[in-house]
């Protein structure tokens, strides 16, 4: 009998399915790696391009790529700030004091799944026209749009943490022991919500680093738009950077998984 109790597939069946799908899904990744190792017209393979990228020895032609990566990192941080400053306090407030608003908040937070980024960008163009006049056309302003894009992911991460806590009892206990609200937030709420907040932050970073649609159509430079530009001149470098970004996102999600699993283990 298996842990879940539901009839599990026979090992042969399981490994046939996983093996076949795994191999098919590995082909494009292998093809990308093979492509970056190709040695031009004379054939054969070497590591020279990887050495160039990893030593940062790319020359001035690739400076836009560096700028774009910087932009993406700044946007990721700013988006996490939007999530932490605007979304999280609202979610805590609704959970504690305004239970009637729980369903409406969930609806609003999951709404961006139904509104394609390409549709949002049609309406964001005039909004950003106004923002550019007020705050300039700095790339960081995109973080407001990205905050909306990551809303469903961040909401789910934080909400699953909130659902696992008895927030009302925790705060009442702290208050009745004489803690002021700021102390309750810093010493009771935040430590208990750490897993949810970390997961929300990481998933936001992963989504922002992969975002292309909005940046591209609002003419801002980020990692993804720069990759498309670089790919036209030097597809090898673009593919190497893309592979590194994929690897980075993979590790980021592994860490999120660990955080989540830690939680399920603690509450059996």
């Amino acid at each position: 009998m298996t842990a879940s109790g539901v009839p599990a597939p026979r090992p042969a069946t399981r490994w046939t399915i996983l093996g076949a799908v795994g191999i098919v899904f590995a082909i494009p990744i292998v093809a990308m790696v093979e492509f970056t190792l190709r040695r031009g017209l004379e054939g054969g393979y070497d590591l020279s391009r990887w050495v160039t990228v990893l030593t940062g020895d790319l020359g001035p032609a690739y400076r836009p790529l560096g700028t774009a990566i910087g932009n993406s990192v700044a946007l990721a941080l700013a988006t996490v700030a939007v999530v932490l400053v605007l979304l999280v306090p609202t979610m805590i407030l609704v959970q504690l004091k305004l239970p009637a608003l729980r369903r409406p908040l969930e609806f609003v937070c999951l709404l961006p799944i139904s509104i394609p980024a390409i549709v949002l960008v049609v309406g964001l163009a005039p909004v950003y026209g106004v923002i550019a006049r007020i705050a300039g056309s700095g790339v960081w302003t995109l973080a407001f749009a990205y905050g909306i894009v990551v809303l469903p992911f961040a909401y789910r991460a934080v909400q699953s943490n909130l659902d696992a806590l008895d927030l009302a009892t925790l705060t009442e206990a702290a208050r009745s022991l004489g803690a002021s609200w700021p102390v309750v937030i810093v010493r009771v709420l935040l430590p208990n919500l750490r897993r949810g907040l970390l997961a929300a932050a990481f998933i936001s970073v992963a989504v922002v680093l992969g975002e292309f649609t909005i940046a591209s159509l609002l003419n801002r430079q980020n990692l993804q738009t720069a990759l498309v530009v670089v790919q036209k001149d030097d597809p090898f470098i673009a593919v190497i950077v893309a592979l590194l970004a994929l690897l980075f996102a993979f590790v980021l999600l592994l860490v999120i998984g660990r955080i989540g699993r830690g939680r399920t283990r603690r509450t059996p």
Binding site: A31, M32, E34, F35, G210, F212, A245, L246
Partner: peptide, 12 residues
């Protein structure tokens, strides 16, 4: 996260 990378992957 795919997006642009998937285009590269399938060109390769």
């Amino acid at each position: 996260f795919g997006g642009v990378m998937l285009a590269f992957a399938f060109v390769a």
